[in-house]
Simulated scan of single mutants.
Amino acid sequence: MTAGSIVLAQPRGFCAGVRRAIGIVERALDLYGAPVYVRKEIVHNHHIVAELVKRGAVFVDSEEEVPEGAVCVFSAHGVSPGVRSAAADRGLEVIDATCPLVSKVHQEAVRFARDGRTVLLVGHEGHEEVEGVLGEAPDRIVVVETEEDVRRLALPDDTPVAVLTQTTLSFDETAKVVRALRARFTDLLTPGEDDICYASQNRQNAVKDLARRNDLVLVVGSRNSSNSLRMVEVAREHGAAAHLVPDESHLDEAWLHGVSAIGVSAGASAPEILVHGLVTRLAALGFDRVELQRGIAEDVVFSMPGRLADPVTGRVPRTPLADEAPLSPGGAA
């Protein structure tokens, strides 16, 4: 195979909310010992879940599966008030790892619903984040995913509405849906800031650039990771062949035929070790020149809950900026 090059996206991989959530589970295991129960996957990545299981985390689908009085961590995607109530009824020691940006959407939903508005939540029906927000005001929140959904809404055009969005959506596709809502409804409010998180926007923008510069774009991420799937879609929409790669074992060498330049990125819940693995596999196949894309350097840090403070010093551990040392340009090592 002809030698080729790799361009590593910047930024890629873990966002602040994911680092915080993983750190919360690790800190809870340090403080309370195993087992620590986690409702749903703490973040949508198979490697992270498997590593935490090795440390003593137990992942469950419902708070009802957690023994009464046990420690239970809520995932980064957030939960509904009903879940919080059920956990309280069971006497669970709850530690909330909800991403602060998701919590902001919950607060906005409550505020708009209390103001008497119908909340139109742009998102994917059934996604954990959407289910959590829906639970804040189920009688006043309607999920819309496409422009066609907007046309089918059984609401008068003068209905007072407010628009919120799932944080991990494609920025471009969401903008189309929001434009359709603005065109239809005469009394429409949106929050002061866009709900799609900074990390999703930054990674999508980086992938757009990769798609314009490379024959192929590979996105490291699990199949149930919404933001990773959106990155693949964005790359395809901007002219590149693109595939989701949960880890290097899922690389199909047929994708590389006729390719001389590959862009590599990773979803916000994918650890750098999986990027290392993919780059090493590509190097063995002839793609042994690595360069780093010019991009935004993220420095956002979210603090951990106060209840995880050190019992002696009272200090709350700081969430690290990165999960591991990044790959160096110029080689796969």
Score class of each variant (00 low, 15 high):
Q204H: 14
R318F: 11
V71K: 10
L8W: 14
G78A: 07
E253N: 07
T159Y: 14
V316F: 01
R117D: 00
Q201T: 04
L181Y: 07
G277N: 07
E148T: 12
G277M: 12
V316P: 00
T118I: 06
R12I: 07
G23H: 06
I95W: 02
L92K: 02
E253Q: 09
G239M: 05
E93C: 12
E148L: 10
V316W: 02
S200M: 11
H124W: 04
A235L: 13
A211W: 02
C15E: 00
V144R: 03
L8C: 12
E193L: 07
A183M: 13
P246I: 03
H106R: 12
Q293V: 10
I273T: 14
V7E: 04
S200L: 04
A183I: 09
S85E: 15
P311T: 09
Q201H: 08
W255Q: 06
S328R: 14
V245T: 01
V110I: 10
M304F: 11
K208I: 05
E237C: 04
A297R: 12
T159C: 09
Q166E: 08
S222Y: 02
L120D: 01
P11F: 05
S303E: 14
I95L: 05
R318W: 14
A88S: 13
H243Q: 15
L210H: 01
L52Q: 06
L181W: 07
G258H: 07
F302M: 09
H243T: 06
T168A: 05
P271I: 14
L216K: 03
V53N: 06
S226I: 03
E93I: 15
A270Y: 02
L101F: 09
V279C: 09
G330E: 06
D115M: 13
E237W: 07
A180T: 05
A333R: 12
D288L: 08
R90A: 13
V7I: 15
H44M: 10
R84N: 08
A162S: 11
S249M: 08
A241N: 11
P11D: 08
R90P: 00
A34L: 10
Q10S: 09
L251M: 13
S62G: 10
L189Q: 13
G23Y: 06
Q204G: 11
D209P: 00
V36S: 02
R151V: 11
R90H: 11
Q10F: 03
P326C: 11
K54C: 08
V142M: 06
D195I: 14
V245L: 15
L327R: 01
E65L: 15
